[in-house]
């Protein structure tokens, strides 16, 4: 059985990856929206996004919309593949427990 991905397995990072994985590859979520969807605090979310970015699982783009800074987080191809593997491993664990 494959190992779970330690980076993704952390609960908030799992939520971030789950949220980003649903979107079209070119589409990302801005920081406030991601914060609302995951129920995380600013500092916590920022730290976990940084961990995912360091692993190459997400890309972070900072831009100005009008005068407001906007941070957009997008899942990379590496991140999507890692997330798919992680989900497959979770399914394997369940199947193994059910004796399939």
């Amino acid at each position: 059985m494959a190992e779970l991905d330690d980076i993704i397995h952390q609960p908030l990072r799992l939520k971030i990856m789950a949220a980003l994985n649903v979107l079209h590859p070119a589409q990302g979520l801005d920081f406030p929206r991601l914060k609302k969807l995951t129920g995380a605090t600013d500092g916590n979310l920022g730290a976990h996004i940084e961990t995912l970015a360091k692993a190459g699982y997400v890309s972070v783009e900072k831009a100005f919309v009008g005068k407001k800074p906007q941070t957009t987080v997008t899942a990379t191809a590496t991140g999507r593949a890692a997330f798919a593997r992680h989900v497959a491993t979770l399914r394997e664990i369940i199947a193994a427990a059910e004796g399939k």
Binding site: E3, L4, H9, P11, L14, K15, A18, A19, N21, V22, L23, Q27, L29, R33, L37, T38, V87, L90, R91, I93, I94, A96, A97, E98
Partner: peptide, 26 residues
């Protein structure tokens, strides 16, 4: 390694969040 209940809970969390994001985007 986690047990099957924890794996199940993680998958449910993923499913729930995915639904929320799809709805939000829509």
């Amino acid at each position: 390694m986690i047990n099957s209940q924890e794996a199940s809970a993680a998958l449910m969390e993923i499913e729930s969040l995915s639904r929320l994001v799809r709805q939000s985007v829509f």
